[in-house]
Design a protein around this nucleic acid. Structure first.
Lengths: 243, 243
DNA sequence: ACCTGAACACCGTTCAAGT
DNA sequence: ACCTGAACACCGTTCAAGT
């Protein structure tokens, strides 16, 4: 058996109108952790959360299994703010809107973006996002297999790009990447040399938009994963290729 | 000005046939760091490298700016083992072979995969890989702009998937993801509920192959980034400061 | 039973003091 | 100038001892 399910226990503390110093609770710990990340904290730390809650680090272990569980809880708490949008507009715009919201929630705090990368998002709010993306890809005409794997790929991309953006960042004519490209001489790395400007071009938003085109277009057009081998449960029509 | 270029200094120590205990050098430090990661080390640590080299942690600072620089150096040292393959075969198989080699080098050690994610790969060996991928995408018929951004996307994907694989892993009918999906009831998350099996289906290799199809196909088919707006010969489309 | 101070086994980095 | 022991300011986690 693995650990007990960390998302099952409801936040039991509400107590509005209670004393200024809220009693220790799982909800208070998670909220404080997220608050610290969003107000510039370098990384999530049990000791810092405990200090803010005016207790010792050991006390948190009554509410949280370990740091990894706290990370998962904090991440899901943050994902509550991802806007799923309404049902108006073309599906492509709505896919873009969801993923833009996703990346903007994560990028709002570098520490949160880093945390998101090392942590698989499996809380209720992550599920809500997956649910929406599955619906949108289905609406877009993707077959069920491509939709499922496609959502996975989209979420992976969004998480990765958020983490990368905050890690010092890709773009820009200065910065480590540009410095690296200056080392690429024409004879040793002819393609890199020729592509230097293009490798650095574009704003983050432009590149993000382009990448979503690539991913969504690719998901809709790629040969879907072999249905009969992979989904024994499902009826699986052998109709390949939509075009 | 940022830090001095960490990749410029040549490895000055060779001394084959020298004493059993090699003298401290940048090369020895980097090799030892990689060796530790590859033999099961949980994470790269200056103290552990120093201990293995029979010195104190402070001594390493004569050869290495800080932990971040050591990470970059160790990563590039590892990327030396990525096989670029020959010129035989169809371009698509060769793209796949390079990226498979890339991911397998990173995945060989969980700690290395994690390190790769937090570190932008800008050493000579990373450049070598970018050079090869640019050549292959160009051969495949991608326009120069799509090739440049496409390589970026491919490398991001490969790095992310390596890190994710080692983080406890996607697949499997048990594990945290499956556990999360069990929480998805039909009325709250109908699409997730219906896609449960598909979300978990396939081996890592199958999913990787499918994702490369999506990415490469998408890169070749997507509307290329607006060339005239993005690649001015001279300066920066975006002025960005690091902070 | 719940809670926690103190300890344990780690970190990266700095710096005064040695050579 | 180069090198480093010792210290500083942190970590996550454990556990004996308190209530």
């Amino acid at each position: 058996m693995s650990k007990r399910d960390p998302f099952l226990a409801p936040q039991v503390e509400s107590r509005r109108g209670g004393p200024a110093k809220q009693p220790l609770s799982r909800g208070a710990i998670v909220s404080e952790g997220l608050r610290q990340l969003r107000t510039g904290g370098e990384s999530l730390s049990l000791r810092k959360v405990a200090a803010a809650l005016e207790t010792g680090p050991a006390s948190l272990y009554a509410y949280v299994e370990d740091l990894d569980e706290l990370r998962a809880l904090v991440l899901d708490h943050a994902l509550k703010d991802v806007a799923l949008g309404g049902t108006a507009g073309a599906w492509r715009e709505r896919v873009n809107a969801v993923l833009e919201s996703y990346v903007s929630v994560l990028s709002a705090s570098p520490a949160l973006a880093r945390l998101a990368f090392g942590t698989i998002a499996v809380g209720p709010n992550a599920l809500r996002i997956v649910e929406k993306l599955l619906a949108l890809l289905t609406e877009a005409g993707a077959d069920p297999d491509s939709s499922a794997w496609g959502v996975d790929l989209l979420v992976l991309y969004v998480t990765a790009i958020a983490a990368e953006h905050t890690g010092g960042g890709h773009p820009g004519v200065e910065g480590p990447v540009a410095q690296a490209l200056d080392r690429a001489t024409e004879q040793d790395y002819p393609h890199v040399f020729a592509a230097r400007a293009r490798l650095l071009s574009g704003t983050g938003v432009q590149r993000f938009g382009w990448a979503l085109d690539v991913l969504v277009g690719g998901i809709l057009n790629a040969r879907p994963p072999n249905p009969q081998a992979l989904t024994p449960r499902a009826p699986a029509p052998t109709r390949r290729r939509r075009s």
